[in-house]
Simulated scan of single mutants.
Amino acid sequence: MNARTEPAEAGPSATARPPLVREILLVVGLFLVYKFGRQLATGHTAEAYRNAGRVWDWERTLHLPGEGSVQSLLLHGDTLAHIANTYYATVHFPATVAFLVWLYLKRPAHYVWARRVLAALTGAALVLHLVFPLAPPRMLAAAGLVDTAKVYGPSVYGPPQTDTLSNQFAAMPSLHFGWALMVAIGLIVATRSHWRWLWLLHPLVTLVVIVGTANHYWMDALVAAALLGIALAITHPPHRTAATAGRAQEKLAPAEPQENVLVGAVR
Rank of each mutant, 00 (worst) to 15 (best):
P133C: 00
T5Q: 08
A41H: 04
D57F: 15
A89C: 13
V55R: 04
E250L: 04
I210P: 05
T191D: 10
T5D: 07
L207F: 12
L80M: 13
V97D: 13
L181Y: 10
T206W: 04
Q258N: 09
H216C: 11
P12T: 06
L165P: 04
A243Q: 07
L32I: 10
A142Y: 03
Q168I: 09
T162Q: 11
A225K: 06
A180D: 06
L140S: 09
R196P: 02
E9I: 01
L20V: 14
W179K: 00
G186P: 04
I24V: 15
F99I: 01
G37L: 11
A89D: 13
A255M: 13
H194N: 08
L187S: 02
E59K: 01
V183M: 05
R138P: 07
Q249L: 14
G264M: 02
V131E: 02
Y157L: 08
P19F: 12
K106L: 13
L252S: 12
L118H: 08
N260C: 02
V55D: 02
Q71T: 07
L228T: 03
T191G: 12
L100E: 03
F177W: 07
V70M: 08
A84H: 04
V183G: 02
A231G: 03
E250C: 02
G246T: 02
R17L: 13
M172C: 11
